[in-house]
Amino acid sequence: MNKVETYIQQFEPEIQQRLLVLRKLFFETLPDTEESIRYNMPAYKAGTHHLYFAAYKKHIGFYPVYGLPEIEDEVSLYKAKNTKDSLHFPHNKPLPLALIRKIIKLKSKQQ
């Protein structure tokens, strides 16, 4: 079991499933992505950037999401209060997989 799998295993089964869906989405979108733990969170190389997610009691945080004016309206629905680059995906709502896929693709093309 690698470090990301160990991270995911620490959560309750419902949250584990959500995290596994995100993990799978990264590999589907960027098959050659590098997976690691950075800042105590799963991290995925997207071009010259890293994207991160982390589970919390009420949501999954997704970071950093900035510099994407073409989808600002879409990401604004999930922006965490008082932050410029954090998205929160509440556990009581479906993950916005199409939006997350867009973010991964756009970040992988940024310099």
Rank of each mutant, 00 (worst) to 15 (best):
I15R: 08
H49R: 14
D85N: 06
H50C: 00
L97G: 01
P13Y: 04
N2C: 00
A80V: 14
Y44G: 13
H59Q: 06
S86R: 02
K81P: 00
Y78F: 14
K102M: 10
V21N: 03
F26T: 02
S108W: 01
L106E: 11
E12D: 05
L87G: 10
I15C: 07
Y56M: 05
F62E: 02
T83V: 04
Q110T: 04
Y63M: 13
F26E: 03
P31Y: 14
A54V: 04
F62R: 04
R18C: 09
R23I: 09
D32Y: 05
I60G: 07
Y66H: 15
H88S: 00
L20H: 13
E74W: 05
L22M: 14
L106A: 05
E14P: 07
Q110V: 03
T33K: 04
L19I: 03
P96Y: 06
G47N: 00
Y7S: 03
T6A: 13
E70L: 05
K102L: 09
T29K: 07
G67K: 08
K109M: 13
G67L: 03
A54D: 02
G61D: 08
P13L: 11
K3Q: 12
V21M: 07
E28Q: 15
R18S: 02
F53N: 01
R18K: 11
K105M: 15
D32V: 12
Y7T: 00
F11Q: 06
L95K: 00
E70S: 05
E14K: 15
K102N: 08
H49Q: 13
A43W: 05
K45D: 02
Y52H: 14
P90W: 06
F11V: 04
T33G: 10
S108E: 06
F27Q: 13
K79L: 12
P69L: 07
Y7W: 13
K3H: 10
K24E: 15
F27E: 08
H91V: 04
T6K: 08
P13W: 11
L95E: 01
Y66F: 13
K102P: 05
S76R: 14
E28T: 15
E14Q: 14
G61P: 03
L30P: 11
I37S: 00
E12M: 02
P13H: 06
N40F: 03
Y52Q: 06
P31Q: 15
L51V: 07
D32R: 06
S108L: 06
K84G: 14
T33L: 13
T48V: 12
A46N: 02
P42S: 05
Q16N: 11
E74D: 15
Y44R: 12
Y63K: 00
E14D: 14
L22D: 08
L68C: 11
L68R: 07
K109S: 12
E74A: 15
E72L: 11
E70T: 12
E74P: 09
H59R: 05
K45E: 02
R23V: 01
R101Y: 14
Y66E: 14
V21A: 09
H91T: 11
E72A: 14
D73V: 12
D85E: 10
G47V: 07
A54L: 09
Y63W: 15
R38K: 15
E12A: 11
P64T: 12
Y66M: 13
N40L: 09
Y63S: 04
M41E: 10
Q110P: 06
Q16W: 09
